[in-house]
């Protein structure tokens, strides 16, 4: 088995909180800005930020094609939070373009604007679970219709808020803004 090397996409967004979480989880993550750095890593985190900005910056250096290619080839595991999750979803009417890595539609700002951002406990039903964590939802996307092979790993009430398909994990809230790193630890085990 190859050694685990993790990176955080460091083009825009909450990069530092993810670096902290990965570092607490026992790895020494790199900040990824260029395609050639993809050779160094086995696990990549796509942070929260603005999905249209991330898309624009990913396009500049062909990362928007390189990353999905490596995931499809089985060389890279992906964890996306919030804006990062949106990029991994199923192609839909909304911008920005999606990568079709997880067969789910993410609706941007699904709970409304910033005044509707909130913190509520979420329940891990698979993945790093069982158990509850603090869910910080900031202008969060909402997960649409689900079907296999997508597995729900966390819920808020009856609603899915984190999903997994193979080695791709997408989460609509922000575990990196808490000191609870069980999602990151579990992700590194994929």
């Amino acid at each position: 088995m190859t050694a685990i090397c993790a990176g955080v996409l460091a083009l825009q967004g909450s990069v530092e909180p993810h670096l902290r979480a990965l570092s607490r989880a026992g790895v020494d993550p790199i900040e990824l800005r260029r395609p050639d750095q993809l050779d160094q890593i086995t696990h990549l985190v796509l942070p929260g930020g603005e999905s249209t900005t991330l898309h624009h910056l990913l396009e500049l250096h062909s990362l928007s094609s390189e990353i999905p290619q490596r995931v499809e080839a089985g060389d890279l595991a992906l964890l996306g939070t919030c804006a990062g999750a949106i990029l991994m979803g199923r192609e839909c009417q909304e911008s920005p373009p999606r990568w079709n890595l997880i067969d789910v539609e993410f609706q941007r700002n699904g709970y409304g604007r910033q005044v509707h951002s909130f913190i509520e406990p979420i329940e891990w039903i698979a993945g790093p679970g069982p158990g509850a964590s603090e869910g910080i939802f900031i202008r969060a996307p909402r997960i649409g219709q689900l079907s296999p092979p997508v597995e729900v790993i966390a819920t808020l009430g009856t609603e899915a808020v984190a999903v997994r398909q193979e080695r791709c994990v997408a989460c609509t809230f922000h575990p990196e803004l808490t000191e609870d790193d069980r999602l990151h630890r579990w992700f590194l085990s994929l």
């Binding site: 825009q12 929260g48 930020g49 603005e50 909130f118 913190i119 939802f137 900031i138 922000h174 803004l177």
Partner: peptide, 20 residues
């Protein structure tokens, strides 16, 4: 960490804008 939930969601949005 240690602030009210409301303040944390405010600072959280600021965190999301970093590097932009």
């Amino acid at each position: 960490i240690g602030s009210t939930d409301e303040f944390r969601t405010k600072v959280g949005l600021a965190e999301m804008l970093r590097g932009g």
